[in-house]
Simulated scan of single mutants.
Amino acid sequence: MALPPLDWATLVGFVGMIMIVSAYGYLTAKDSPDPFILHGTNLVGATLLAVSLLVHTNLPSLVLEAIWISVAIWGLTKAIMARRQSK
């Protein structure tokens, strides 16, 4: 079985995947991770993967990325609210 070509959508997907895995590594490595870095990186990574999946459709993975985007937005919203309350 031949590998598909590395077109722009596949490369965008790889960048998104690297960002999500890096965010998880950051979460694991830090005792007190910055929620803006963690959730912001996840949001951008999941969005890039979703763009890739819109071109090379895989519906279960696209739904997973939509959920991942929602969780990242929720995390960013919580972080913004906590920052406002601490001021």
Rank of each mutant, 00 (worst) to 15 (best):
T47G: 14
L64R: 08
L59Q: 09
D7R: 09
S22E: 04
K30W: 09
I73G: 03
L43T: 07
I80H: 09
V21F: 09
L27A: 06
V44R: 03
V51I: 13
Q85H: 12
W8V: 15
V71H: 01
V21C: 07
A82S: 07
L59W: 13
I80T: 09
G16F: 07
F14S: 08
H56I: 03
L54N: 10
N42I: 07
H39W: 15
W8G: 15
R84I: 05
A46W: 07
F14G: 13
G25P: 04
L64A: 04
G40Y: 12
A2H: 15
V44P: 03
A29R: 13
V63G: 02
I80G: 06
P33S: 02
V12F: 12
M17Q: 15
W74N: 06
E65A: 00
E65V: 00
T28M: 14
Y26K: 00
W8R: 15
Q85A: 15
A23K: 00
I80K: 08
T47L: 13
N42V: 06
K30A: 11
T10I: 13
V51W: 09
V21N: 05
P33R: 03
T47A: 14
P60H: 08
F14Q: 13
I37G: 04
L6R: 12
L64N: 02
P35E: 06
V44L: 12
V63Q: 03
S70D: 01
M17R: 14
I80M: 09
V12K: 10
S22R: 07
A79T: 02
F36D: 05
T47P: 10
S86L: 11
S70Y: 04
Y26R: 01
H39D: 10
A2M: 14
G45M: 00
G45Y: 02
M81L: 13
V21G: 03
